[in-house]
C-alpha cells in the first residue's frame, strides 16, 4: 500500500470538507474493496476519508412504503434486520450472500453501490427494486445511477447518504456465485412492485448491471418462471473469463432469472 493521509470525520459535513481539501482523495466506507485495491497498488489516493465513525450514515428505517437504509450500514445488519426480512426478504437474502461473514460485518451497502463492481450483488438489488440513491447533493434513481464498469453518476465531491427501496409486492434474488469469491458470475433480481416489473442482471455484462426489457414485458403479463421460457440475452458484451465464457453467462442469465422469479414466490 502506498502511504496516504487518513481522515476520520465525525460528520458528513466534515467528510465533504476533508474530501474537497484533498488533492486526490477517496472515500472509504467499510474498506472491504478499497483496502485490497490499495494493497495491490491499483490506486494511490493522497487521502483516505473514512466514513466509519459517522453515526448518521448507519441504520435502517421504514418510511411510508419504503425501506431506507443508511449508506454506512453493513451487509450483516441488512441481512439480519427484522424489517428488511419481513418487507423485502429478497434484499436480506442478497445481503446474506455477499462474501463471507467477516466481509459482511464490515462491508457496507453505500460502499458497494458507489464502487459499482460489475459482479457485485447490490447494483442488481437497487436496479431490480427501483431504488433511489440519496446523496449529499440530490436524489438519483437507480436507473440513472449505474453508468458503466465501476462508473456511477456520483460527482467527485458527492457522498451517498442513504438508499430507499420501495417495498415490492414480490421480489426474488438468485445468483450463481463464483465458488471462491462469492461474487456473482450471474445474479438476477426480479421484482414486481411500485416501480413496475423489473429484472436486473449483475455479473454478466462488461458494462455492469443491466435490465432485460423482454423479460420484464413477459413477467408483466404473467409473473412466473414459465413466462421466461425461450427468452435469452445476446452474448455480445458478456464477460468472459476462466470461470465462464460469454455464451455460458448468456445462458445463465435465463436460468438464474427463472430462479429469481421462483424465489419471489
Amino acid at each position: 500500500m502506498y502511504a496516504f493521509n487518513y481522515h476520520r470525520p465525525a460528520s458528513i459535513d466534515e467528510a465533504i470538507s476533508a474530501l474537497s481539501g484533498a488533492s486526490d482523495g477517496t472515500v472509504m466506507s467499510g474498506g472491504q474493496t478499497l483496502l485490497p485495491t490499495l494493497k495491490q497498488r491499483l490506486a494511490s489516493p493522497s487521502d483516505v476519508i473514512d466514513l466509519g465513525a459517522i453515526a448518521a450514515l448507519k441504520g435502517i428505517r421504514e418510511d411510508g412504503g419504503a425501506i431506507v437504509i443508511g449508506a454506512g450500514t453493513c451487509h450483516a445488519a441488512v441481512a439480519g434486520d427484522a424489517t428488511v426480512r419481513a418487507k423485502i426478504p429478497a434484499l436480506a437474502a442478497l445481503a446474506e450472500g455477499i462474501g463471507d461473514p467477516q466481509v459482511r460485518n464490515r462491508g457496507t451497502i453505500g460502499g458497494s453501490v458507489a464502487n459499482n463492481d460489475p459482479v457485485a450483488d447490490y447494483p442488481a438489488g437497487l436496479l431490480g427494486l427501483g431504488a433511489t440513491i440519496k446523496t449529499t447533493k440530490r436524489e438519483i434513481a437507480a436507473d440513472d445511477f449505474f453508468t458503466g464498469l465501476f462508473e456511477t453518476a456520483l460527482a467527485d465531491d458527492e457522498i451517498i447518504t442513504e438508499i430507499s427501496f420501495p417495498v415490492p409486492q414480490k421480489a426474488g434474488y438468485a445468483k450463481f456465485p463464483n465458488p471462491a469469491s462469492r461474487y456473482a458470475i450471474v445474479g438476477v433480481m426480479a421484482a414486481q412492485g411500485p416501480a413496475g416489473v423489473r429484472v436486473a442482471v449483475t455479473g454478466a455484462s462488461e458494462g455492469g448491471v443491466f435490465r432485460v426489457a423482454e423479460m420484464e414485458a413477459a413477467l408483466g403479463g404473467n409473473f412466473s418462471a414459465e413466462a421466461l421460457a425461450g427468452i435469452g440475452v445476446p452474448e455480445d458484451n458478456m464477460n468472459a473469463d476462466i470461470h465462464a465464457s460469454a455464451a455460458y453467462r448468456a445462458h445463465l442469465v435465463g436460468v438464474i432469472a427463472k430462479r429469481a422469479v421462483e424465489a419471489a414466490g
Partner: peptide, 8 residues
Amino acid sequence: SAKACTVL
C-alpha cells in the same frame, strides 16, 4: 468478527 488484514 473481522479480518484484521483488511482493517486499518
